[in-house]
Design a protein around this nucleic acid. Structure first.
Ligand SMILES: [Mn+2]
Ligand SMILES: [Mn+2]
Ligand SMILES: [Zn+2]
Ligand SMILES: [Zn+2]
Lengths: 152, 152
DNA sequence: TTTGCTATTGAAAATCATTTTCATAAACAT
DNA sequence: ATGTTTATGAAAATGATTTTCAATAGCAAA
């Protein structure tokens, strides 16, 4: 059982990356937030705890974490990337799909998959992997529509 | 049975939009291309047939067509939006999902859905529509991985 | 602990896709 | 044909993300 705190430290070190204060501050923040934060959102929030942080570092750290698979990056069409933790701890995954309002931009996470959903995705992955000789390691699914508020 | 050519003319006019030369040139091009074109790609290609075209107009036209549902806009993570015709004619749909190489950016369309795929998506749509009171009218699915070329 | 190497940082400047502005031109209802 | 808009294109503005570069801080080794 991995420790609840700092499970990413080994991951960083394992990659030969240094365990710096800004990186820890960013990860600390992300693990407490559930929203879909932009780089700037993260910058301002981290700044409250660690005022020396630079926006550049936020971008660089996010890129690193995305490459490591620790953070997921999304584009919901409003011109800025959104980030969120891909996993809540070493083993616990945080995988979900999105429901997006094309009118106001509201984004909803949904994890209550239809029973067959997971298994179908796996099946599809396998089929695609075979047919196109791809090594598939991730996917995104999003539904677009009009939210209750914008319907009125 | 709608005419093969110019089925979008009525659609534009139906919206109270004018049927201009630039718009027709852009639609003409899109209907001949199968790739995932950026606004700039489209700009240069259209320029060959209609040299007076402006990049601004390309952006504006694409936005209009996306709002009309005639064109689909995608973000494959390379910093520029990609566009393609959402339908090849009045009734014929061109819906498909994507397989994206995270190493070189190669994008593959796939339409050979697993049998249950379509029906599951509908089922999921209905479930989400009910649960979150959303009016769902579109979706995107993409799988990320490493393409044959990048594996080597 | 101290040292030395090198990855990392932050500020400022640069990039670059997309948007806005604005004067002119083209659609099209009449 | 005419007049009213809508649409266009050039140029400038915007704004998110990247690059540059000198200074700093992690950390492996002594
Ligand atoms: Mn999410
Ligand atoms: Mn496609
Ligand atoms: Zn909404
Ligand atoms: Zn590739």
């Amino acid at each position: 059982m991995p420790r609840q705190r700092g499970w990413w430290k080994r991951r960083l070190r394992g990659r030969g990356c240094r365990l710096t204060v800004p990186r820890q501050a960013i990860l600390e923040l992300l693990s407490k937030s559930s929203e879909h934060l932009s780089a700037e959102d993260i910058y301002f929030k981290v700044k409250k705890i660690y005022p020396a942080i630079g926006l550049t570092t936020v971008y660089r750290t996010l890129e690193l974490l995305v490459n490591m698979g620790v953070v997921s990056k999304f584009d919901f069409g409003d011109g800025r990337a959104r980030y969120e933790l891909a996993a809540n701890s070493e083993d616990e995954e945080n995988h979900h799909h999105h429901l997006i309002c094309t009118s106001c931009g509201k984004v909803i996470n949904y994890t209550d998959f239809v029973n067959q959903e997971k298994e179908l995705i796996e099946k599809t992955e396998n089929k695609l992997a075979t047919k196109y000789n791809f090594e598939i390691n991730n996917h995104q699914i999003q539904f677009y529509g009009i939210c209750p508020n914008c319907k009125k």
